[in-house]
Design a protein around this nucleic acid. Structure first.
Length: 733
DNA sequence: CAAGTATTACCG
DNA sequence: GGTAATACTTGA
């Protein structure tokens, strides 16, 4: 009797929305094959890493096409069944091919087939070299590095230690130093040196105690808590003590942050509290560090994992709790490829793995507040902590017909002048970097535009160049109009120009500008923030970056110079984001004895929701905004999916989207809007359009999407465009 | 006609 | 996405 043939169903990292059937590898018993293992598979003409998803006695594929697996990578599964189920759910929910979903969730080394073993990390250690071959004046970087090693001759410093110390890309100088015998390669032994003294927990106030008790009581089962508390209300201490409870139960905790680079203080607080039990995942790590932390968490060797969006996929041997800090932050939504939302994945993961999830924010997303209102989440509020900064007073400044000094209205300039005279700091927020967003000919009206994007190019004074903020293209600024040789003028104001205006109007003020241009390079942001803290600046000027993470107790006057964009945007979420920004920026300033003032410059001081925000606070704003969303049937009262497409030729794009729309099932309770031009209709030489699907019911939308996209994929017009589907889009652009 | 390049098909 | 076969340019 011949035993029935077994078929392996395997995911491969490819944009194809299906799995592939293979024959078992020769010489491997069926019992050795388990879902979750990686294996080498022949794929087309290549050899690729595949992930075994299942085994069965049937396949729809013709026997002639089947090939045997070439070999196993993992003897035991890399993922548990529960983890695979989460990945399959994500693939289905976000309508992204399973192979790519798995690939984006794996650290690069494992994605490329490296064995799942925790490797020793290597670094460099001081060695007494030949004094005659000491790096001299010609090798300043080597000398700098050598000085660092000499300070701690016993220490083994890894690439990430060095980059933390401000030495990036020092591979070359290190090799040279090693060549001269001044340092040598050395293994880092696991628990490095003696663990520093760990900080002890701080006493909690009543509200923090209530929150901690609610979270603790829910350990061991699924529950989502919305921890709603302004800056300085002590959210972090609640996180820290909840995590400590999880560790005491022998379990692990996962903490997600929007951007680690912007919140070094928070990371350090976790380090001080948990020492070597903490693993941090961030973009500055080498692939090998990243894979090691991931594998350590999976093996239960690391108990607390702190990371950004992609850390939500880190496997945990004994998962106990997930925390999503600043849950409203847009960076949790991946904006290309596999467009998942880490906060929503965290909640689904908590649900499936039976663990509580804590969403923390001073300005929760409207979706999250709605879920709390519906009692799907526990709403935990932390009021202002006694003795900490009081909320600053918020003023809406009507700048209609005002005399302007650049981006600053006359009245506000006077406030800045007074604040400066009083010896206090001010913070100005303008979400546009560069000098001026438009360069125009005063004689003929010609504008400097990006050829590929049809948007105006921003003038950067520092570099004396024009840059397109959409595609990154740069070119020198012409001195005269290329059409008529007329005079060129700068129109509009960016942070660079704002800095210049301030320097002219307030010549005594010391100004620090913080944006992507001024903080290029590692450590620069921290250095600038430090000097701002140390009182080296009277006025801080910056973009979005200023609103995140850092608190400036010395600041008593905050200006949001351009609020109008958020009031009347085509994106329905713009107002929510503006409100969050206003509250977040306000929270950056002030101290107990001087709560400070926030000024919002606008041409629309009568805007009802803006008034609600400034007069009654974020909670009242959110409720009013939710009522508006309900009337307009927008999320969270409806569910959206966005089909985007781009191609060099507009007609290919519109033809594809029209055909896609026509593939939608009739009478389905899903409404298609479009195709319409994308908010940025041209980018990098591509024409972009989109088709928005709206449904009143989430399961309805989900059911339709799968079959629909299969049809869409079959369209011949789909091959002439680049298309993608975005489920729960955050930005309709 | 060779060489370069856009288009298409396919991956088990 | 990657690869390769095919169809279709271009230039001596």
């Amino acid at each position: 009797m011949q035993s029935s043939q077994r078929y392996l169903h395997i995911a491969v990292a490819t944009p194809l929305r299906r799995t592939f059937s293979y024959l078992p590898p020769t010489g491997i018993a069926d019992e050795q094959l388990q879902p979750g293992q990686r294996l080498w598979v022949p794929f087309g003409r290549q050899r690729r890493v595949g992930m075994l998803l299942g085994l069965s006695d049937h396949t729809d594929v013709a026997a002639a096409k089947l090939k045997p697996v070439q070999g196993l990578i993992d003897d035991t599964p890399l993922f548990t069944g529960a983890q695979l189920d989460l990945l399959k759910w994500a693939s289905d929910y976000y309508q992204h091919p399973i192979g790519e979903v798995i690939a984006t969730c794996l650290p690069a080394e494992l994605r490329h087939g490296k064995a799942a073993t925790i490797s020793a990390t290597y670094g460099w250690q001081y060695a007494a070299g030949d004094p005659a071959r000491r790096p001299d004046r010609r090798a300043p970087r080597q000398a700098e590095l050598l000085a660092l090693f000499e300070q701690q001759p016993e220490a083994v410093l890894t690439a990430s230690d060095l980059s933390a110390a401000g030495h990036d890309n020092c591979h070359g100088p290190l090799r040279a130093l090693a060549e001269r015998g001044w340092i040598r390669r050395a293994r880092v032994d696991a628990p490095q040196a003696a663990p520093a003294e760990l900080e002890t927990p701080l006493p909690l106030n009543a509200a923090q105690q209530v929150a901690l008790e609610a979270i603790s009581a829910s350990l061991g089962g699924y529950r989502t808590h919305l921890l709603d508390g302004v800056t300085g209300s002590g959210k972090t201490e609640v996180y820290l003590q909840s995590v400590a409870e999880v560790l005491a139960r022998g379990q692990q905790a996962l903490i997600l942050l929007p951007e680690i680079g912007l919140t070094p203080q928070l990371v350090r607080r976790f380090e001080r509290r948990f020492g070597t039990r903490l693993g941090v995942l961030h973009s500055g790590l080498t692939d090998s560090d990243r894979a090691n932390t991931w594998l350590r968490a999976r093996a239960g060797e690391v108990d607390v994992v702190l990371g950004t969006r992609s850390a939500v996929w880190t496997p945990l041997a004994h998962p106990g709790l997930i925390i999503v800090d600043e849950e409203h932050d847009l960076s949790y939504k991946q904006q290309d490829g596999f467009r998942y939302h880490a906060r929503d994945v965290a909640i689904m993961r908590g649900h499936r793995e039976s663990l509580p999830v804590v969403l923390g924010s001073a300005t929760p997303a409207l979706e999250s507040l709605h879920n709390a209102d519906q009692d799907r989440y526990t709403h935990l509020s932390l009021p202002q902590r006694a003795g900490s900064a009081r909320s600053p007073a918020v003023h809406v400044l009507d700048i209609r017909q005002s005399h302007m000094h650049g981006a600053i209205a006359d009245r506000f300039m006077n406030m800045l002048r007074d604040n400066l005279a009083a010896g206090r700091q001010s913070l100005l927020f303008l979400n546009r970097r560069g000098y001026a967003p438009v360069v125009m000919c005063h004689d003929c009206g010609w504008k400097a535009e990006c050829r590929r994007c049809e948007t105006t190019m921003t003038y950067h004074h520092g570099r004396a160049r024009l840059a397109c903020h959409h595609c990154g293209r740069e070119q020198p600024r012409p001195s005269t109009c290329p059409d008529c040789q007329g005079t060129l003028i700068e129109v509009g104001h960016g942070t660079e120009r704002l800095e210049e205006t301030l320097a002219k109007q307030l010549p005594d003020a010391r100004i620090i500008r913080i944006d992507r241009d001024s903080t290029r390079g590692r450590g620069n942001l921290e250095a600038l923030l430090e000097s701002a803290h140390g009182g080296a600046a009277d006025i801080l000027v910056g973009t979005q970056m200023l609103a995140k993470g850092h608190h400036f107790p010395g600041v008593s006057l905050v200006g949001i110079l351009e609020a109008d964009g958020g009031l009347f945007s085509s994106d329905f979420r713009a107002l929510e984001h503006l409100a969050q920004l206003i509250v977040q920026v306000s929270g950056r300033a002030g101290r107990a004895e001087h709560p400070g003032e926030v000024v919002i410059q606008t041409h629309h001081p009568e805007h009802a929701l803006l008034r609600t925000l400034t007069e009654h606070g974020y909670g009242a704003f959110a409720q009013a905004a939710l009522r508006e969303r309900e009337q307009l049937e927008l999320p969270p009262y409806s569910y959206l999916a966005l089909l985007r497409a781009e191609a060099k030729q507009l007609q290919h794009v519109s033809q594809f989207l029209e055909q896609a729309r026509d593939c939608l099932p009739r009478q389905a309770e899903v409404y298609a809007l479009g195709p319409v031009p994308a908010p940025r209709p041209r980018r990098a030489g591509f024409q972009r359009q989109q088709l928005l699907l709206q449904a009143g019911d989430r399961t309805h939308l989900r059911r339709i999407l799968g079959n629909w996209l299969q049809d869409v994929e079959q369209l011949t017009s789909s091959k002439k465009v680049r298309w993608s589907i975005d489920v729960d889009p955050q930005e309709l652009g």
